[in-house]
Amino acid sequence: MKGIDSAVTSPNERQCTVFESFGVLARGTETEVREIVRKTMAQRETSPTRAFYDDDGEEFDPTSPDPAKIIGGNSPPEPEPIRKAGRPKLGVVAREVTLLPRHWEWLESQPGGASVALRKLVEMARRDSGPADRVRRSLEATYRFLSAMCGNAAGFEEICRALFRKDWEDFDAKLNHYMTIELANHIKTLSRKARPEYQE
């Protein structure tokens, strides 16, 4: 795997992993891995590379042009917005919401009106469904990566069945049996937030 210790990592960029065949070629931010892939391809002939975001398992093309994220790019910074007098904005975004009349009636009767009541309801729902949403997203990310990277590999269906049963002992055993060490470790990392021992 190529080293990236000397690169500057932006906390706002998503972390990614690039595979060459079934081994890890690079890990880092999207900017970093694009640069590593570019330099590697310039130095030698490479096997087909495949790049994935670490948070959701989505695949992207590390060789496609991406001027906004090239290291040392000369994109001008966005100008600071002009501050106007008056009440500061709260960062809210206006969208259309369709509800039944009785729902609107109840919302408008709440302290602060419909918008405040809706925001409170959403925050409560996010808090209450947080653990279940975390597990679902982790399972989806793991399956997404497995399907893209290993969909034709031996053991794929057995691994997926163990994943959705949340039989982690069987899941890990099958990964260790069918996959390379680097690939198995990456898949285990993708699934970590669905496991009962995971702590925020």
Rank of each mutant, 00 (worst) to 15 (best):
P65A: 11
S10A: 13
C16S: 14
I82G: 02
K69M: 08
G113P: 07
Q199T: 05
R192N: 07
I82A: 08
E13T: 12
V97C: 09
T9Q: 15
G112T: 11
S191V: 00
H103V: 05
L107R: 04
L190W: 01
T49A: 11
P76V: 11
R165F: 11
R137W: 00
G73W: 08
R127D: 12
M124A: 15
S47R: 15
T9R: 15
A51R: 05
E182M: 05
V92R: 13
F60Q: 04
T46W: 08
E59V: 05
P131A: 12
I36G: 01
T63W: 07
F164T: 06
P76R: 11
T49K: 04
R27C: 11
S10V: 05
S109F: 02
Q43E: 13
G130V: 02
K120S: 05
R192M: 10
K188F: 00
A7I: 06
P196N: 07
W168V: 09
G113M: 10
I82V: 14
R144D: 01
F156S: 08
T180H: 04
Q43S: 14
L190D: 01
A154D: 13
S129H: 09
S115Y: 02
K120E: 12
D133P: 00
A141P: 00
E200G: 02
A125G: 12
G155Y: 01
A125V: 13
A26R: 01
T17D: 08
R83T: 14
E35T: 11
S191P: 00
I187Y: 03
F145M: 04
T17P: 04
E32M: 08
L139Q: 07
L99H: 09
I159H: 00
M1Y: 05
R44K: 15
F19L: 12
E123F: 02
P101Q: 08
E123L: 06
G155V: 06
G86R: 01
Y143K: 02
V33Q: 03
A148C: 08
G72I: 02
E78R: 13
G86P: 05
R127G: 03
R136A: 05
Q199R: 15
N176M: 00
S64F: 03
A7P: 00
D128V: 11
E35I: 10
K89C: 03
V18R: 10
V135I: 14
R195F: 00
E58I: 04
T17N: 08
A173T: 07
G130T: 02
I70L: 08
E35L: 15
P196T: 09
